[in-house]
């Protein structure tokens, strides 16, 4: 599940206080966080990932109360229970697609079990990029990068998946394909999509619209 209550955040003492509406999403549910530029979408996403600490309020993601956790706990939690699909597909450029996929497991547990490798190959095949498994990220097309990014976020079966503008740079057909992949592959996880893409507003029953923040 994902739940936030009375969350406010301030980047620095002299800066504006950003406020976010309360909402919750049940385990395995889907939710859209819709907002235009300046609504604090990225800030909220980073708060939900435990990359930022709220000034006030309570954030619960999966089994974790983020506002009451240490940095070390949050690092481990992100690696094991959270999957993030970024707007721009970030990769470690010196590693292959397969190695990038295995990296969260390596960083969290210090090893890569053989069964994970089999899962990796299955997932890449399902996403249609099995033949690109040994390629370096810069050798992939934008669409392939996006699918590889989804594969990496979902491989370790996270409880919660956050997707940051997953369709913003895609045409209608590609956007629909990416969302279908996300829905299918994250079937057991809670999926929170943060976007300004109006094409997605009717996709899920649960949608929270973020209003522009007051300066």
């Amino acid at each position: 599940m994902v739940s936030i209550e009375g969350v406010k955040f301030q980047y620095d003492a002299a800066g504006p206080v950003l406020s976010f509406p309360d909402f919750s999403c049940a385990q395995g549910g889907r939710m859209l966080l819709l907002g235009n530029s300046g609504a604090g979408k990225t800030t909220l996403l980073h708060l939900l990932c435990g990359l930022l600490t709220p000034t006030t309020g309570a954030l619960t993601v999966g089994s974790k109360s983020l506002h009451a956790s240490t940095d070390r706990e949050l690092d481990r939690w992100r690696g094991s229970e959270v999957g993030v699909v970024f707007q721009q597909a970030h990769f470690v450029q010196s590693l292959t697609v397969r190695e990038n996929m295995a990296l969260p497991h390596q960083l969290t547990t210090g090893r890569i079990p053989e069964e994970l490798e089999a899962k990796m190959d299955d997932m890449l095949d399902r996403l249609g990029i099995g033949h690109r498994a040994w390629a370096k990220p810069h050798e992939l097309s934008v669409g392939e990068q996006q699918r590889a990014s989804i594969a990496r976020a979902l491989l370790h079966k996270p409880q919660v998946v956050f997707a940051d503008e997953p369709t913003s740079a895609l045409d209608d057909a590609s956007a629909a394909a990416v969302m279908n992949i996300l829905d299918r592959e994250a079937a057991d996880a809670t999926l929170v999509v943060v976007t300004h893409d109006q094409r997605l507003k009717d996709r899920y029953d649960s949608c929270v619209t973020l209003k522009p923040q007051q300066p």
Partner: peptide, 16 residues
């Protein structure tokens, strides 16, 4: 040059 990669690794469970 790799600050985004390093930040990415933090989101994937890498500690400082």
């Amino acid at each position: 040059a790799r600050r985004h990669e390093l930040a990415l690794m933090r989101t994937m469970g890498g500690t400082p």
